[in-house]
Amino acid sequence: MRNCWLLLLGCLAAACGGNFSNDDLEFLNALPTREDLASELPGSSGTVLEGGLRRRTDALAVAVGEPSELYRDTREASDTFNNGMDGLLTLLEEIRKLPPTTREPELRVWGPWPAPEHPGHEVRFAMKREPERFIYLLQYRTRGAGEEGWWSALEGSFQPDGGLRKGTGAVRLLVKETKAHGFDVGGLANLDLLEIVYQTRALPITVRMRFVPAAPRTASEILYAYRELPGGLGEMGFLLEDTDILPGTRKEDLAIISRWTKDQGGVGIISVTGGDVPMGFTATQVECWDASFRVTYLKRSWETAEVGSASACPDVSALEQP
């Protein structure tokens, strides 16, 4: 899908500029921004910790000051989360730079323009204002087809709740439908749907992302959740159900919740249930890291040994409320 986004952006960049009305801005403010949705985990996406690729099996072998594997897992989850919406957010950033080509009292349309990546097709971005919400669509059609020929590759909605960009919204990348029309979706080819649901009306800002596989018998649905508070406090949750984690014949459910501060490190909890984990038992691991992303504390529920001191973990209690 990113390939599709990038080629569409080239089309948008070639469009003519102009002025925006106040009503145009009301429509544009219904679109999510990178600031609203992106995970802001400290450390760049290129952060590499020496030794971080070694999967630990013995808590006693871990020492304070070693690279934190749980931070690395959180970094990978954060990058996957951000990459999942990067093309979408880049597209919306470009839309905001362009005045609509069609204005009606409750409608704005950008396009249609030729779709250079799909010869013989046209593309448009349309937004409709309803009494309680805005809805928007990224659509394609075969050139020369009528209004009924448009089909949607993306659909979104936003319900304002007072204040600039405050409210609840959802965006769905309709990967299955896009593939059915013969379009290249790039790295999303193994998916049928990518869904993003968010709320910005109250703190903490929350974002949930759902990856729905095209082949559910061989791949599991993946869920991500992100929360953010002012001052650099953040939380990333990750759920992977029915996956083979432990030795044995049955599959487990894996959940990771990581909370972090702006400059004092973070705390992560891994939970594994079901499958080859004994019935009624949850295997958990708590790991804390410092501002350099190195272990300060580690404890596993199935071992009596601890590494470091729990007092070295940063205070993330503000994120412990539901």
Score class of each variant (00 low, 15 high):
Arg141Lys: 15
Asn22Met: 13
Tyr224Phe: 15
Leu254Val: 11
Lys179Asp: 02
Ala305Asn: 14
Ala15Thr: 14
Thr206Tyr: 03
Trp5Ser: 08
Tyr136Asp: 08
Arg172Phe: 01
Asp184Arg: 08
Glu221Arg: 01
Phe125Thr: 05
Phe134Asp: 07
Ile256Phe: 04
Asp290His: 11
Val64Lys: 13
Arg294Gly: 08
Gly17Thr: 08
Val185Leu: 04
Phe20Val: 07
Arg56Ser: 09
Phe20Lys: 03
Thr33Ile: 05
Ala214Thr: 00
Arg56Ile: 08
Glu177Trp: 05
Pro114Ser: 12
Pro67Glu: 09
Phe81Val: 11
Leu188Asp: 14
Ala215Ile: 06
Leu164His: 08
Gly248Pro: 11
Gly84Lys: 03
Val286Lys: 13
Gln199Trp: 02
Asp86Pro: 04
Glu252Trp: 14
Glu66Gly: 00
Trp302Tyr: 14
Leu25Asp: 04
Glu93Pro: 04
Gln139Asp: 01
Ala63Ser: 12
Leu233Val: 06
Arg2Trp: 12
Pro322Thr: 02
Pro278Thr: 01
Ser292Pro: 01
Met236Asp: 06
Leu173Arg: 02
Glu228Ala: 10
Val212Ala: 03
Ile269Gly: 01
Ala14Ile: 09
Glu320Asn: 13
Gln321Val: 13
Arg165Gly: 03
Glu195Asp: 08
Val48Met: 08
Leu246Phe: 14
Arg103Trp: 04
Pro160Arg: 02
Gly120Trp: 12
Thr296Gln: 12
Ile256Val: 13
Ile269His: 06
Val207Phe: 05
Val212Ile: 09
Lys299Glu: 11
Arg72Cys: 10
Gly120Lys: 09
Glu177His: 09
Ala59Ile: 15
Arg172Thr: 04
Ser44Tyr: 01
Glu147Ser: 09
Thr80Met: 05
Asp58Met: 10
Leu8Asp: 10
Arg201Ser: 12
Arg208Ser: 03
Ala291Tyr: 12
Gly234Phe: 10
Leu223Glu: 09
Glu132Phe: 07
Pro216Gln: 02
Trp150Ile: 00
Gly87His: 05
Tyr224Lys: 05
Ser220Cys: 03
Ala38Gln: 13
Pro278Glu: 12
Arg103Lys: 12
Pro99Gly: 11
Gly280Trp: 11
Trp151Tyr: 07
Glu40Tyr: 06
Ala153Asp: 01
Asp192Phe: 03
Ala283Leu: 15
Glu320Ala: 11
Arg300Ile: 10
Thr80Ala: 11
Arg2Gly: 03
Ala63Tyr: 09
Leu298Val: 07
Leu191Glu: 11
Gln285Asp: 02
Phe20Met: 07
Leu41Thr: 04
Leu88Asn: 06
Arg141Ala: 05
Glu130Gln: 10
Gly111Asn: 10
Pro116Asn: 10
Thr101Gly: 15
Asp276Ser: 14
Phe134Ile: 01
Thr102Gln: 12
Glu50His: 06
Leu12Ser: 08
Asp184Trp: 02
Phe293Ile: 00
Tyr140Arg: 13
His121Ser: 10
Gln199Lys: 03
Leu53Ile: 00
Glu50Ala: 13
Pro247Gly: 15
Thr296Trp: 14
